[in-house]
């Protein structure tokens, strides 16, 4: 069995009117691509934000066996990169400049932007296929290109763990496959870990190694894609009768029954 990336014990998040996460206890494995799925409002984005240290939470969460609050911000950012659900407009910024921002955890506010930084930016641009428009303005790119530019910023951060909040929700089907394949390649070829919030259950089953499903702020199930792709499991998660078909190549596909 692989070792633990995140150890989550009795995690709760509350806002004045309700509980977004309610006593979650969970281990996320390292070196794998983990999907967080669930219905709208199930708390999957909230969980991801807690892991990215974007919002405070009750309970105990460890990353690489150290408690979240014990990490210094830049050390944490060197180990873990986070892509928010909606990427803000990057006013007047070129793709290369945006990607170069990913080097902040390494050089800090005043450090020199050295050869290692330049090399990391070039690698990230090539890896995400945005090298051709490196000098164009981010705001003039199409949705798919922009998403890959932001992904390249994360890659330039050279963190071992990537957290992505619905990275494919604004993309067409070809770009969805492209982005998820890219993340999967980076996980398996470069032994990184990734935690991805996904809406599309078939995409999650096809690309991810491990599935965590939330429902109403609680853990609904976790396991392999084949554990997920059963009508009972899907109905329990989404509250909707689901049917699982098998494609000619043996891949299961879930559709609403």
């Amino acid at each position: 069995m692989t070792h633990t990336l995140f150890g989550i014990e009795n995690l709760s998040v509350e806002v004045p009117t309700r509980r977004l996460l309610d006593g979650i206890t969970l281990q996320l494995p390292a070196g794998q691509m983990v999907a967080l799925i669930g219905h709208n409002g199930s708390g999957k984005s909230t969980l991801l934000k807690v892991l990215a240290r974007q919002i405070p939470a009750l309970g105990r969460v460890t990353f690489e066996n150290r408690r979240l609050e014990d990490w210094a911000s830049r050390d944490y950012a060197r180990r873990l990169a986070f892509l928010p659900q909606t990427t803000p407009p990057a006013e007047g910024m070129t793709v290369r400049e945006l990607v170069a921002l990913g080097r902040y955890p390494w050089h800090g506010a005043l450090g020199r932007f050295g050869p290692a930084d330049h090399a990391a930016v070039e690698r990230a641009l090539n890896e995400c296929g945005v090298a051709d428009f490196a000098d164009r303005l981010v705001d003039t790119l199409s949705g798919g290109e922009r998403q890959r530019a932001w992904l390249a910023m994360m890659i330039a951060q050279e963190a071992g763990t990537l957290l992505l909040d619905e990275p494919i929700s604004a993309l067409d089907i070809a770009h969805q496959v492209e982005v998820l394949a890219l993340v999967r390649r980076m996980c398996h070829a470069q032994s990184r870990s990734a935690v991805i919030v996904l809406h599309e259950v078939n995409m999650a089953a096809r690309f991810c190694d491990h599935i965590v499903a939330l429902k109403g702020g609680r853990l609904a199930m976790q396991g392999s894609p084949s554990d997920l792709m059963r009508p009972e499991a899907l109905q329990a998660i989404y509250g909707l009768p689901m049917q699982v078909l098998t494609r000619p190549d043996g891949q299961p596909v879930a559709i609403p029954a």
Binding site: Y76, P84, P88, G108
Partner: peptide, 23 residues
């Protein structure tokens, strides 16, 4: 000028800036 990297990153919002380890 000394805080130029903060000034470049902050317009992208708190989520991005925090994710990059900005104090």
């Amino acid at each position: 000028m000394a805080s130029r990297r903060w000034l470049a990153t902050l317009p992208l919002g708190a989520e991005t800036a925090g994710g990059l380890g900005l104090p």
